[in-house]
Design a protein around this nucleic acid. Structure first.
Lengths: 144, 144
DNA sequence: ATGTGTGTATTCTCCGATAAGCATAATATT
DNA sequence: AATATTATGCTTATCGGAGAATACACACAT
């Protein structure tokens, strides 16, 4: 399971080293895909498989499904992890998620996410202010 | 599985090289068909088979089915992949999808799509603005 | 029937881009 | 301080795309 928060850098060739604690789980290659809330998702090939399956047998409205499939698959890439534990971030995804040199990598259970540093801290603050309200909702379904 | 986004060119003979990562899956020949939202679809012969089957035992209204079948089958063509991994785009389909020299090829799981460069970027922007709404729907079916 | 011409298809090659590897430097952690 | 981890620059090799050139086929005309 992927957990934790790390600050890493993208070098001038858009390479980023994966947190060491993620490498074993990540294996030899991963899938980089656009993420929600303007971040960038990294899936293990196994998890990616699961996501695709869910998408293909989903009962979404046809046009929504088309849109989202194009959105996800069209921009996803399978990338190899190099001998230094680095992956190459595609330029278009880098731009989309507003990534610059300093990025934040976070583990989110079954995937890793890459965030623009400021976007992540803003997002955290936002969630913080909502935390109580969210907790109430989650409480209703017995999470905490 | 076909994923990713590539910018390729149509040469003056309407030839387009397939993304290298697609070639293995594409094989010796593919089916080029009109796609929805004004793009152009490319199916492997195998996937095309599946599409045809679905159309033949579909539960659509007979007249709708007729319309759609005419739309798809009427304009679809089987084309060979040449030794350089290129395919020849039929003029009528090229015109229909507004393709010029620069085109975008995207992988969408079981098919590839060819887009007019601008049309694709506009479409992406549009979907991006809807991403949150789509995300909620997806959340409901447990995708992310 | 043969030669010529035009259009199409196939092969080849070059150039450029991309990425992988390596080695070293910097940074953080214990 | 020592070690593990991350960053970065450089170099080399590989791959792919696009264009050019060649070969082929068909048609038409002489």
């Amino acid at each position: 399971m992927l957990i934790g928060e790390y600050t890493h850098t993208l070098d001038e060739k858009n390479r980023m080293s994966l947190p060491v604690k993620f490498r074993k789980e990540m294996g030899k290659s991963v899938v980089v895909a656009p993420g929600l809330d303007n971040c960038l998702s990294i899936f293990t090939t196994k998890e990616w498989q699961k996501v695709s399956e869910k998408l293909s047998d989903s009962s979404m409205l046809a046009s929504d499904n088309r849109s989202f499939s194009r959105f996800m698959f069209g921009q996803a890439v399978s990338v190899d992890v190099d001998t230094n534990g680095r992956i190459l971030i595609p330029e278009n995804l880098k731009i989309r998620s507003n990534l610059s040199t300093k990025v934040v990598v976070i583990g989110v259970q079954n995937r890793a996410e890459i965030w623009n540093e400021k976007a992540w801290s803003d997002y955290k603050k936002l969630v913080e202010t909502q935390a109580d309200a969210l907790a109430d909702k989650l409480g209703q379904i017995g999470v905490l």
